[in-house]
């Protein structure tokens, strides 16, 4: 296949899925800030509800921070992180993807499953417990996921795709409905 036909397929995918942002690379703070600036402009173009815009913005920031907290930093693999923001008639979808060490999966899976099975009332209780807990380097990641769960009505999915013997790709998806606030 020629490069132009690959590009054409890519273009078709981006158009059909209504992809507003597709990014792969290293998420440092500068890149995040640039992406967020662009997201602000883009959301104003495609969406007329500022409450939803802010929800998306907030979930994007926490999702990106979630990526940097759960990346395979010490491995020799290059850090490949991905961000997708798509829009359908009924909802927005945010997906992040990044490599992490297989040995980190059980703890993360346990954390995520705990959040996913909670009701809105239980999520608020968890949020309060977390925010009042002693600050350490890692524990605010938990608060970020809980915050995403609260703001999206817990419409979270995740998946781990085995990549090498030592690492997997961690995919984290949130859906934000356009019509419920």
């Amino acid at each position: 296949m020629t490069n132009t036909s690959i590009a054409y397929e890519f273009y078709q995918f981006m158009t059909e899925k209504n992809v507003l942002i597709a990014f792969t690379g290293h998420f440092d703070h500068l890149v995040t800030t640039s992406l967020l600036k662009y997201v602000r402009v883009k959301l104003k173009e495609v969406n007329s509800d500022p409450a939803i815009d802010r929800k998306i913005y907030s979930i994007l920031v926490e999702s990106i921070e979630n990526v940097s907290k759960y990346s395979a930093k010490s491995s020799n693999e290059p850090i490949i992180a991905m961000l997708l923001l798509c829009k359908s008639d009924t909802h927005f979808t945010i997906i992040t993807g990044n490599h992490l060490l297989n040995s980190d999966i059980p703890i993360l899976r346990e954390k995520l499953d705990k959040v996913l099975k909670y009701s809105p009332v239980e999520l608020k209780k968890m949020y309060r417990e977390q925010i009042l807990s002693q600050r350490t380097h890692e524990n605010s990641a938990g608060l970020g996921i809980i915050d995403i769960a609260i703001k999206s009505n817990n419409q979270i999915q995740y998946n781990f795709k085995l990549s090498t013997d030592d690492t997997s790709i961690y995919l984290f998806q949130t859906q934000i409905n356009i019509f419920d606030k």
Binding site: E62, E65, L143, G144, D147
Partner: peptide, 12 residues
Amino acid sequence: EYFNSTSAKYIK
């Protein structure tokens, strides 16, 4: 206008 979850701990 917006604060992230890490800032939330400091606001508290």
